Amino acid sequence: MAAAAQALSGAGLLLAAAALALLAVAIGTDSWYETDARRHRERCRGFGHKRSDPPGSMSAPGSHLPLRARPPRALLPGRPPAPAPAAATAALDSHCGRRFNSTVSGLWRRCHRAGYEPDSEELIRKGVIQRCTAVKYHYTSSSLPRNLPINITNTIRQDEWHALHLRRMTAGFIGMAVSIILFGWIIGVLGCCKQQELMQYVAGLLFLMGGTCCIISLCTCVAGINFELSRYPRYVYGLPEDISHGYGWSMFCAWGGLGLTLLAGFLCTLAPSLNTSRASVQKPRQENGAV
């Protein structure tokens, strides 16, 4: 039983170390959320519309709901085809008036994706624009669009505060998760060295607590991304349907670290119970021998 308990504790500590490595990789990389705007840029280039945004700017993600045009009506014999709906043309014109770039976003930076857009790469080489910009964790009014009605400006300001709180919660809780898991790993190593079952049990509880913080962090990260994708007004923050977007490998590293942390907590809290069951079996034998 003692060997099995030591094996479980050692496996839990190895899993916790792997979880720390995955979480450190996720925190230090920028591939939490990715966008690919190459198809949209080619479509707008064929549309022949000039963009009003400065070259190399990274537009904020907007609504993930696609813009649906009316289906074409069936053609009757001898009747010419109906012209394209004005609303669909206006929607394409509105989105092509903004400049979308392929980007990757992390907890700390938002960067242009290397090799996706030759014109942006040329501007980066010349030093006109930077490849990465810092993610803001403080409120600034400079990011608000100008020449908008006061009610829309107030809505955007409230949404900016809400998105800021979600970003702060994401970074804060994942930092707490890493700190708690690291502290639990140190206690677990000391418990294995000194054969202290209580320390191993406390380490398992700390791993479970760190996993809980990690769950909160990842859930707020997903909520923040979904909130950014549905901000109002749509014509300012809208994202065209031909821009592909999704979670990157850094996000999957964070989810993998979460799974390993919970498994490590389960193993480390289970290991002391094996020694406890052995002691409870041996105790009646000693009493019977004394009698």
Score class of each variant (00 low, 15 high):
62 G>Q: 02
183 F>Q: 05
23 L>C: 10
250 S>A: 13
105 S>H: 04
210 G>M: 00
181 I>T: 00
233 P>F: 03
160 E>Q: 15
60 A>P: 04
125 R>G: 07
58 M>Y: 05
65 L>Q: 13
244 S>M: 04
117 E>K: 05
86 A>S: 11
36 D>P: 01
92 L>C: 05
175 G>T: 13
77 P>F: 00
234 R>N: 12
168 R>C: 11
58 M>C: 13
284 P>E: 03
180 I>K: 06
65 L>S: 13
200 Q>E: 08
120 S>C: 12
101 N>V: 09
259 G>R: 05
258 L>E: 07
104 V>A: 12
178 V>N: 06
5 A>L: 00
269 T>H: 04
91 A>Q: 07
9 S>H: 07
234 R>P: 02
221 C>M: 15
203 A>E: 00
226 N>C: 12
24 A>H: 14
126 K>F: 01
95 H>E: 11
180 I>P: 02
273 S>P: 05
280 S>F: 12
113 R>H: 04
44 C>D: 02
91 A>Y: 03
179 S>G: 11
169 M>W: 14
269 T>C: 09
191 G>R: 03
129 I>A: 08
27 I>E: 06
287 E>S: 15
269 T>E: 05
29 T>S: 12
201 Y>I: 03
19 A>E: 00
68 R>L: 14
88 A>P: 02
121 E>M: 04
231 R>Y: 03
220 T>I: 09
76 L>H: 07
277 S>P: 08
228 E>G: 15
132 C>F: 11
263 L>W: 02
211 G>L: 00
276 T>W: 09
217 S>N: 09
50 K>T: 14
251 M>H: 01
95 H>K: 08
172 G>V: 02
116 Y>S: 10
176 M>L: 15
278 R>K: 10
91 A>I: 04
167 R>Q: 11
216 I>D: 07
182 L>T: 13
106 G>C: 06
52 S>Q: 14
247 Y>M: 04
209 M>W: 10
44 C>S: 03
167 R>Y: 09
282 Q>F: 09
247 Y>N: 04
195 Q>R: 15
160 E>W: 11
186 I>M: 11
211 G>N: 02
96 C>D: 03
282 Q>H: 12
87 A>K: 10
237 Y>Q: 05
218 L>H: 03
277 S>A: 14
247 Y>C: 01
50 K>Y: 15
69 A>V: 07
251 M>R: 02
105 S>K: 06
201 Y>C: 06
114 A>M: 10
40 H>E: 00
85 P>R: 06
285 R>M: 14
113 R>L: 06
88 A>I: 04
139 Y>T: 02
138 H>Q: 13
233 P>R: 05
123 L>M: 06
73 R>Y: 12
178 V>P: 00
31 S>C: 08
44 C>T: 01
